[in-house]
């Protein structure tokens, strides 16, 4: 007889049962302690209580903090793209695949906003509107909504930052079911980032900036591979080539420093992400 078998039965109905239970060792411990005190008749009730704890426990404050941080970034991205789609006529070349691509990305960012808002419920941060942002970053990118290339460059910075920001929070969500959802958002942002980079290069037709879909080493070995120094902060530390003590450069024939850097995307600490986001927020975080 094994409680694991019972859990397996439940898993057939709820595939996430282990994810729900694992991070909640306390609930399991309570359950085992309780089992010493109760009578057999109360057994099914006790099991019910265990699962109620697994399913009904309120989200820890640190997790809410991570989710609200993510929500802020998703608001930023959503309003950035939405304004381009609905309020900047002529910015995105009409009749090109770019319209569909930017609309798709806008829709995903909105989906992320709604998902995070829903998960946070009453703990969600106050909503942010387009007017809460300054996407020129105090005129650093003055023509962001009139020059398509500037728009794409800022979009790339946002997407690459988004990927780094989610990665930076993975540790805080370790072992929590929320981690899987965060990872699912994280890789969508990476898909966006690669596509925006590909768009800057001119897409399948080429002819644009010398930017790869993956973050490479910049000219002269700098971490920023975009050639736009205003976004240096977005790429700080991306040139790392040692992973958990393993040096990647030269790990096999042909794996140069540039390839090593491309092979691993680096996280960005919350404070660094906040200082990037603050460039675009009228009221800083």
């Amino acid at each position: 007889m094994n409680i694991v078998n019972i859990l397996e039965e439940i898993e057939k109905v709820d595939g996430e049962i282990y994810e729900r239970l694992n991070p909640r060792r306390a609930a399991m411990k309570d359950f085992f302690n309780m089992s010493k005190k109760i009578t057999l008749a109360a057994m099914p009730l006790a099991l019910g209580s265990l699962f109620q704890k697994a399913y009904g426990q309120t989200t820890p404050a640190t997790v809410n903090e991570v989710l609200n941080f993510a929500l802020t970034l998703e608001y930023l991205e959503y309003h950035f793209y939405n304004h381009a789609v609905v309020a900047a006529p002529g910015l995105i070349p009409a009749g090109t695949p770019a319209v569909g691509a930017i609309t798709t990305i806008r829709d995903h960012e909105l989906a992320h906003v709604n998902l995070l808002k829903g998960a946070l419920g009453t703990a969600a941060r106050p909503a942010l509107a387009y007017t809460d942002f300054d996407f020129t970053a105090k005129n650093t990118f003055a023509d962001v909504y009139s020059n398509y290339q500037t728009f794409l460059a800022v979009a790339q910075a946002f997407e690459d930052t988004g990927v780094r920001a989610y990665k930076g929070q993975a540790g805080a969500l370790k072992g929590n079911a929320v981690l899987t959802t965060a990872l699912q958002i994280h890789s969508v942002e990476a898909r966006h980032a690669a596509h925006i980079r590909f768009m800057r290069q001119g897409g399948i037709n080429g002819g644009g900036a010398a930017i790869k879909p993956w973050i490479s080493l910049g000219a002269g070995g700098v971490a920023n591979d975009t050639g736009i120094t205003q976004v240096d902060a977005v790429y700080a530390g991306e040139d790392l080539d040692v992973q958990t003590g393993v040096t990647i450069t030269g790990i096999a024939t042909g794996v140069t420093k540039a390839k090593a850097v491309e092979s691993f995307d680096e996280p960005l600490a919350k404070a660094n992400v906040v200082s990037i986001a603050n460039l675009f927020l009228k009221v800083p975080l």
Binding site: H186, S187, E189, A190, R191, W214, P267
Partner: peptide, 8 residues
Amino acid sequence: GKIVSVEA
């Protein structure tokens, strides 16, 4: 996490 975003 560093690898999965490169795969993406």
